[in-house]
Amino acid sequence: MNIFDIMGPIMVGPSSSHTAGAVRIGLITKTLVGGNVKKADIGLYGSFAATGKGHGTDRAIIAGLLGMQPDDMRIPMSFVVAEKEGLKFKFENVNIPNAHPNTALLHVENEYGNICDVQISSLGGGRILVNKLNGIEVNCSGEKPTIIVRNIDKPGYVAEVTSMLASKNINIATMRLHREKRGGEAVMVIEVDEKINEESIKWLSSIKGVLNVTYIKG
């Protein structure tokens, strides 16, 4: 923890896990789907469901989906802002077996009709973990620049992606591979030390067999 995790962050109260973390859940979901979020179905689990209302968890998640940062004074009024910006949303309490006690499930749609399903937990101190993206386990925090590559599960993709990063002088901090089933869809979650430019992301997307590339700036 650096000293500004101790003296800081500046945030809208009352809780780093249930409010600041909830804003970050909304923010990262917005990044993952891209563009402006127009529709969101949100499920709250565990302590989020039990004490979320008192902590403003619902308003915080919506604030994040609208692109507000955890210190944005408009968080308490985010429902009003959502109405103005045409974001329709719905909350319900859900049960997710074996999930972290502060977890949200989001099904969101952006202005172009792109859809994204995520499961994200708030770990405390404002830190979060994306558990699942479109049904596949990714377990990334989004603190570092992160590339999420969805591809067809065939040999060679990992080498292609990593050699491209090497050629751009980008150092990989961590890398994890997940897949649904053999020959199905696979996901690479790559955390890197430096920010990546748009052109490299485009290049990655153009590789044959790569279905989709998402970049989280960190």
Partner: peptide, 16 residues
């Protein structure tokens, strides 16, 4: 009270 009322505060070391 500011914290409980969803105003902006500085967590030091925590929001509470």
């Amino acid at each position: 009270e500011n914290n409980a009322c969803m105003k902006r505060i500085v967590a030091a070391p925590t929001a509470g």
